Amino acid sequence: MMALLTPIRTRPRMDRRSTVWHVDWVLVLGVVALSSIGAMLIWSATHGRTSLTDGNQYAFLLRHALNFAIGLVLAIGAAVTDPRRVRILAPVLYAASVVGLILVLVPGVGAVINGSRSWIQLPWMSIQPSEFAKLAVIVGMALLIAEKGETDHHDTARTVDVAQAIGVAAVPVVLVMLQPDLGTVMVLGSIVFGIIAVSGVPKRWMLGLVTAGVVVAALAIKLQVLKDYQLARFIAFADPSQDPQGIGYNVNQARIAIGNGGVFGQGLFHGGQTQNAFVPEQHTDFVFTVAGEELGLIGAGAIIVLFALVLLRGLRIAINARDAFGRLVATGIVCWFAFQAFENIGMTLGIMPVTGLPLPFVSYGGSSMFACLLAIGLLQNIHLRSHRF
Rank of each mutant, 00 (worst) to 15 (best):
L34A: 09
V310T: 02
P83F: 07
L311W: 12
K227Y: 08
M14G: 02
I42M: 10
V176Q: 05
Y94Q: 08
W119E: 09
T355K: 13
V201M: 11
M40P: 04
F339H: 12
G115Q: 10
Q57G: 11
V174M: 14
P280W: 07
G108E: 02
L135G: 15
Q230I: 09
I351E: 05
V329D: 01
F234T: 01
D24H: 11
N250H: 15
A375N: 03
P83L: 05
S386W: 03
A302I: 13
N56C: 06
R255V: 15
P123M: 14
F288T: 13
G100P: 00
L105A: 12
H22R: 13
N250L: 08
V215G: 07
L27V: 02
G100C: 05
L62E: 13
S241P: 00
V137D: 07
L207Q: 04
R316V: 00
G326Y: 05
I102F: 15
A75G: 04
I42W: 14
L178D: 00
G272F: 14
R17F: 02
P91K: 08
L359H: 08
K222Y: 14
I376W: 14
H153D: 14
A142V: 08
W21F: 14
D323M: 04
G365T: 11
V310S: 02
G77D: 00
V73I: 15
L378D: 09
S241G: 07
A197P: 02
M347C: 03
G167N: 09
